[in-house]
Measured scan of single mutants.
Amino acid sequence: PDEFRDPLMDTLMTDPVRLPSGTIMDRSIILRHLLNSPTDPFNRQTLTESMLEPVPELKEQIQAWMREKQN
């Protein structure tokens, strides 16, 4: 489902985090971005790792969907 895909890389998220802007991304992708630029890739506001907020409900939904697909 589209809501499980990272908006920057269009890959399935495994550890979704919410940026201060409200955008949800995969943690590994935003951390890689932050190594090059300490900004939100969508609005260029300053962004640090400590500002990332886990989204455990979405992570659980993704994991359940993945388990379902394996069966």
Rank of each mutant, 00 (worst) to 15 (best):
K59T: 06
M25K: 03
W65K: 08
M9W: 02
M51G: 07
R5G: 06
I62K: 02
L31N: 15
M13T: 04
I29S: 14
K59V: 08
R32C: 15
P1L: 01
Q45R: 10
W65D: 12
T23C: 12
R18A: 09
I24K: 02
T23A: 13
P16H: 00
D2H: 09
D2W: 06
E60I: 06
D10P: 00
L8K: 05
T48R: 12
L31V: 15
T23W: 11
D40H: 04
I30Y: 06
S28I: 12
L8I: 14
F42K: 10
I30V: 13
P7Y: 02
A64D: 14
W65T: 00
P41F: 01
I30R: 01
N36D: 11
L8F: 11
E3R: 08
M9L: 11
V17A: 01
S37P: 03
M66L: 15
D10Y: 02
R27K: 14
E49Q: 11
G22N: 08
A64R: 13
Q45F: 06
P38R: 11
T48G: 05
K69L: 06
E3S: 11
P54E: 13
R32G: 11
V55H: 05
F42E: 08
R32F: 05
K69T: 15
P38D: 15
P20N: 03
R5T: 08
P20Q: 00
Q45E: 15
G22L: 02
P41Q: 07
L8E: 05
P41Y: 00
P41R: 01
E49K: 10
A64I: 06
K59R: 04
D2S: 11
L47A: 04
N71Q: 14
V55R: 02
M66H: 15
D6Q: 00
I62L: 03
M25I: 01
R67A: 15
M51P: 02
D40P: 03
V55W: 11
D6E: 04
T23E: 07
L31Q: 09
L52S: 04
L35C: 14
S21D: 02
D10T: 00
H33A: 06
F42H: 04
L31P: 01
N36G: 07
P38Q: 14
P16I: 12
P54R: 04
L58N: 06
T23N: 15
M25L: 08
T14F: 11
T39I: 05
S21K: 07
S28H: 10
L31A: 14
T11H: 04
L8Y: 06
D10Q: 09
P38E: 05
S21C: 10
R5L: 10
T11G: 04
D15W: 04
V55I: 09
P38G: 13
P7W: 02
M66D: 09
S37V: 05
W65G: 06
S50K: 09
D15V: 00
E49L: 11
M51Q: 09
I62S: 04
T23M: 10
L52Y: 03
F42N: 00
M25V: 09
N43R: 07
Q45T: 15
L58A: 07
P16E: 03
L34D: 09
D2Q: 15
S28T: 15
P56Q: 07
E3I: 15
E57P: 05
R44M: 15
D2K: 13
F4R: 09
K59S: 07
P20H: 06
T46R: 14
M9P: 05
Q45W: 07
Q61M: 08
T46P: 14
L31S: 13
R44A: 13
I29E: 03
D6L: 00
I29F: 03
T39S: 10
S28P: 12
H33G: 01
V55Y: 05
L31G: 06
I29A: 09
V17L: 00
Q45V: 12
W65H: 15
P38C: 09
D6P: 03
V55Q: 11
N43W: 00
L47S: 02
I24G: 06
M66T: 14
M9A: 13
S37G: 07
R44C: 10
I62D: 03
T11C: 10
D15H: 02
R27E: 09
P38S: 10
M9C: 13
F4H: 09
E53P: 00
P41T: 00
R67Y: 12
R27T: 08
P56A: 08
I29V: 15
L47I: 13
L58D: 08
T48N: 15
F42Q: 07
L35Q: 14
A64C: 12
T14C: 10
Q45A: 13
D10M: 09
T23K: 15
S37D: 11
E68S: 13
T11Y: 02
T14P: 04
R5F: 11
L58R: 07
L52W: 01
L52Q: 11
A64T: 10
S28R: 13
E57H: 12
E57G: 07
L8T: 11
S28W: 07
E57Y: 11
E53H: 11
Q61F: 10
L19G: 01
P20Y: 01
T14K: 09
P56E: 11
L47V: 07
Q70M: 06
L8M: 10
S37I: 11
T11R: 07
P1D: 08
E68W: 08
P41C: 04
T23P: 06
D6N: 04
K69S: 11
E3A: 10
R44K: 14
V17P: 01
N71A: 13
L34M: 11
L35E: 15
V17D: 04
D10F: 05
M66K: 13
L58V: 07
